[in-house]
Simulated scan of single mutants.
Amino acid sequence: MNSIGLIAPLLVVTGLLAEASDTVDAPTEALAEVQLRALTQKMADARRLGDSRFFRELVAPDFLQTTDDGRWLDRDAFLVRTAEESRHRGLSYNDIRVRVFGPVALLHSTARITSATGEVENVRNSEVYVWSGSRWRLVSTQSTSILPGVGLALQTALATPDSPWEGAWHHDDDPAALRELNESYVQAFRDADVAWYGAHLSPDYLVVNGDGSFYDRAVALTDFAKPTYATQISAFPVDKVNIRRFNDVALVHAENAYLLKDGRSGVNRYTDVWVRRDGRWTCVAAHITVHRPAA
């Protein structure tokens, strides 16, 4: 086989075919996972080496990043930041989890970063990729620093039967329905309405919390059942909602500028990932990052 024949299968496996290539259907779930794991390794190499060209080719035009200090960056700002940031002495991605929803893929990972001065930081990442017809393009990424004392492993619990929920399902397939679902998600937190969450969180739901902890559905439901809003929070509005749709997957980006009963305040920025199945939207993932404005 000539060299071109050897290179072509490799490009298919890594999902890095040029845009000029013929359009092909989205890869199978198994192949997509191989491709995205390979892309994650290439991303680590690109960050270590300061390879901005790699990111220009990977990142989609409508890309949105939520940084580990809670800033929102569009594609241009992300590329500038990537080109300017100092190279890492060491960077590895661990606990990589890939879920595929047709032409859309959701990837969770934990990054272990060693700075040029030897300091080590662990960061939780969530990334969303969309198949362009020839390769995977990155449309969203969010990071949250894992605070000292917070475990790196996914926290799991045995699932228990969901509480009955007597509300009406959203069958509409439009941005207004997604916006209402987002409002209902936040209201359910205020009300500690675990039955609402039981009805709307997918069985494979995962959440990254603002301290970097990582919960499965069962642990999250236990947390949602606590009257956190009633006992600790005076105000928890939702604002700056940005909804993006990719096939049967929707990304909801927004923020909660909260006020605690003791007078402290802060801002959480989040991305929720919703998937439409059998005419219903269910949430498969949530990622929260504390917004820390520059001084």
Score class of each variant (00 low, 15 high):
T271V: 09
Y229S: 12
V273I: 10
R97N: 03
F224L: 03
D262A: 12
E84L: 13
D174M: 09
Y215F: 14
W281Y: 00
E85N: 08
A285D: 12
Q155N: 02
P164A: 13
W131P: 01
E127M: 12
G5E: 10
R179H: 13
S126I: 11
R217Q: 11
G151P: 09
L58N: 03
T110S: 13
Y93P: 02
M1V: 14
A111P: 06
A77V: 00
K261V: 06
L39T: 13
L138G: 02
R179P: 07
I113R: 15
D216L: 09
L107T: 06
D172F: 04
R97Q: 08
Y185H: 03
P9L: 15
N268S: 00
H108W: 14
A111G: 01
K261R: 12
N209W: 08
A295F: 08
D76R: 06
W196F: 05
G266H: 03
N247S: 03
R48S: 01
K42D: 10
E121Q: 12
F214M: 08
T66H: 09
V150K: 06
D191G: 10
S163H: 05
P164W: 04
A230T: 07
L106A: 00
I7Q: 05
A153K: 05
R135S: 11
D173V: 00
R48G: 00
D191V: 10
A32F: 05
R81N: 14
T141C: 03
R112L: 09
P103N: 14
H200T: 00
V249C: 02
R53V: 12
V290D: 10
P237W: 06
R89D: 13
S126K: 08
E85C: 10
R112G: 04
A220E: 15
Y93G: 02
P293A: 15
V100Y: 02
V98E: 11
T271M: 02
E183C: 07
R81I: 05
V194A: 07
A195C: 13
G15F: 14
G5N: 08
I233P: 05
E127D: 11
R53S: 11
P148M: 05
E180L: 11
A168G: 09
R48H: 03
N122S: 09
G5P: 00
